[in-house]
């Protein structure tokens, strides 16, 4: 990366430095103008009144009654989804590598189908499905629906991660195992999968970011009490929609930024450990992926 930056332009000389400073000043002025406009508009609409912002600092109940339980709701839904989606993803990822057509093809169809459909559609469907055809208590239907939608979607994404992880291993690994007389299942579970898991780890962590963001979608639409949905109860109690949304956004950014950092830290660590011999599944590739395309 740093290499790419430096090769695109010469080291700035005195003139270029001056020009860069000029650009910076123009840019700062433009940003300041936008910020000034926003602040004046907000002040004009009384959105900057201290009373609307103060509760987040002075009233701990905002956090204990609404935001932290909301964050807890987000975490529960996200963790449940990833814990259930992982084994499902592993099974389908391995199934797609099977040499039997009758395993490989159905697995591929399922994976491609769920990757082609918006996760919101899956959640809405699951929501009404649980209401009409299951004995899930209605107050947990939204959670069940969100987790189901996320598992179906992320299970299929993780299937691709697993597949790419296994394919990223040197061929010699499987060949050596075969030479030792191992069965295919043994090769897969004792040789390939354990190594693939380390290669996949960064991708799995960064998939958590996607899951956390999608819980907000499901929660907001289906009314599950996660962080974003709590914006309603907070602004009902304090009449401060804008400050609430800002604080909720901050919490999301902090949580997701930490997860992204963890993912890239893991990636660097794993890459350095084996001195470039081993590839990792690039976490960036996982987030948004096209059906019908190979990683």
């Amino acid at each position: 990366m740093s290499k790419a930056i430096s090769i695109l332009y010469d080291a700035p000389g005195p003139k270029a430095k001056q020009r860069n400073i000029l650009y910076s000043i123009v840019f700062v002025l433009a940003l300041a103008a936008v910020a000034w406009w926003i602040v004046t508009m907000l002040a004009d609409k009384h959105q900057l009144d201290a009373a609307k912002w103060k509760p987040f600092v002075t009233d701990s109940r905002v956090w204990t009654t609404y935001l932290l339980p909301g964050l807890q709701g987000t975490v529960i839904a996200a963790l449940l989804s990833v814990v259930i989606a992982l084994p499902i993803g592993a099974i389908f990822g391995i199934a797609r590598l099977s040499e039997h057509v009758w395993i490989r093809v159905p697995a591929s169809v399922v994976v491609e189908f769920f990757r082609a459909i918006p996760v919101l559609i899956l959640m809405v469907f699951a929501n009404y499905f649980f209401v009409h055809y299951s004995s899930v208590p209605l107050e947990s239907v939204a959670l069940f629906a969100i987790v189901t939608g996320l598992v179906l979607y992320n299970g299929s994404v993780l299937a691709e991660v697993v597949r790419a992880g296994i394919l990223s291993l040197p061929k010699g690994q499987a060949e050596a195992a075969a030479a030792l007389g191992m069965r295919k299942t043994q090769t897969m579970t004792l040789i390939q999968l354990p190594q693939a898991v380390t290669a996949m780890l960064p991708a799995i962590v960064s998939q958590l970011v996607v899951i956390v963001k999608d819980t907000a979608l499901g929660g907001y639409i289906l009314g599950y009490a996660e962080l974003l949905t709590q914006s309603r109860t907070v602004s009902n109690a304090y009449s401060n929609t804008i400050p609430t949304l800002v604080f909720i956004a901050l919490v999301f950014i902090v949580v997701n930024f930490a997860l992204s950092q963890l993912a890239s830290w893991l990636e660097n660590k794993l890459r350095n450990r084996t001195k470039g011999n081993r590839t990792t599944v690039n976490p960036e590739m996982v987030e948004e992926q096209a059906p019908g395309m190979k990683m």
Partner: peptide
């Protein structure tokens, strides 16, 4: 870093509200 880590739902609701 800011926009990627914010849920899209929050961004879209933010455009309206």
């Amino acid at each position: 870093n800011i926009v990627r880590n914010t849920p899209l739902t929050l961004i879209i609701v933010g455009t309206l509200l």
